[in-house]
Design a protein around this nucleic acid. Structure first.
Lengths: 215, 215
DNA sequence: TGGCATACCAGACAAATGTCTGTTATGCTG
DNA sequence: CAGCATAACAGACATTTGTCTGGTATGCCA
């Protein structure tokens, strides 16, 4: 390995390690060494130690494959940008289209997981994902086949888009709370507002993110 | 440790390891041992080996902390499941709302990155993300403030939703190619179809995924 | 009763992985 | 130029982690 300009190799090492960490797989020093063709492990360790000092990585001491991404990325400045990449990246279970009975069972046995960034203050178990069926929320830009990420927690708040478990399965609707009790309003004139009798409906959580794969 | 009924401890071990793996942190045998208070590492290894044989875990041989979750959970059967979690997880640069001049510069200096799963066959540099401005695609469920993930590559195909660079900035539209040349059709009756003269428009790529953060 | 499987323990061993100490070269700067 | 920082190398060493071989106890069942 020839000597390279200052910082150049360091950045390449960082990107390599970061990408591996984003995939949930911390590399060993020797794996990094092999990838770059260094002839000494120590070269890698020097780079990683430097990256830790620069705050670009953190390390859990005394354990193999202990490098991690720092809790918070260096901050962005522009105003109302969606808050991607501020929290921890966590695999949230994708439950599919859950029917009433199968909810707890689906949690235990998800169709898969998808990487979602959640705030530090929340726990992974507060989140799950569902696939949307039906057109009832198409007016809010939520289409059949979309995947919604749901945060379950706290009291339901009027006006939020929620996932409700009623009758036989889960539906996405906008929640309204008034004197007449709970209303689940679709966002599509072809559908009717639901007014479930008290006790017949359970709010699983509120929709915090939407994802759609196209083609 | 007293002897427990068959399968009981095994399940508890599985849940512990699974939760750790879902947090992106593969435990070592001795960490599992400590957590359960076993007095022998081998006890853990026996459980984990059994779990691998049962197909509930997989193991990358010859490496520390090499236990993983199996690629796909036992299938549920419903039809068009989005293909989350099939490829590599990669940080795709988020460029913001790009104007004509600043495109290459924005690639070098993104607002941030967001974790996206891309096919093994593609390169990270084939992807970028943009924030959507304007209502012109709201009929297709693409709203202002949404983030679209764009794959740049290959020939533009008629009917796809694309990002086009024309005049002063980038817009999302549905592409149509016919005898009359290129058409960029909005999905909102309040907007007009664009027919840019040849050469005045560059297709940056096609939209492959949409993300929206709610609240 | 004698297998046989399962749960667990004990300790040695080996492989993977991180740490340390010292060395060579290159460029920058006073 | 001397002094200093950075990039990279070399090899020994320590720790973490996984593997193996054998042993005890318990329950089930033919």
């Amino acid at each position: 390995m020839p000597k390279t300009p200052p910082g150049q190799t360091r950045n390449r090492v960082f990107r390599f390690v970061r990408d591996r960490l984003l995939r949930g797989d911390s590399p060993s020093l020797r794996e990094v060494q092999q990838h770059f063709g260094f002839r000494a492990v120590e070269t890698v360790r020097a780079h990683l130690t430097a990256l830790v000092e620069e705050g670009r990585l953190v390390k859990e001491p005394g354990r193999a494959r202990g490098y991690r991404l720092p809790k918070r990325q260096p901050k962005r400045l522009s105003a109302p940008v969606p808050d991607w990449s501020s929290g921890r990246l966590q695999p949230v279970p994708l439950l599919g289209e859950v029917a009433a009975g199968g909810f707890e069972e689906a949690i235990e046995n998800p169709e898969g997981n998808l990487p979602v960034e959640i705030p530090d203050s929340r726990d992974l178990s507060d989140y799950f994902a569902l696939r949307v069926r039906g057109e009832s929320m198409s007016g809010a830009g939520i289409l059949p086949g979309d995947t919604v990420i749901v945060e379950r927690r706290g009291k339901p708040v009027s006006g939020q888009i929620v996932v409700a478990l009623l009758e036989e399965d889960a539906t996405v609707k906008r929640l309204h709370l008034g004197q007449h009790g709970m209303e689940l309003r679709p966002e599509n004139p072809d559908f009717d507002t639901l007014r479930p009798p008290p006790g017949s409906c359970r709010i699983l959580g509120r929709v915090v993110e939407l994802r759609r794969q196209i083609r």
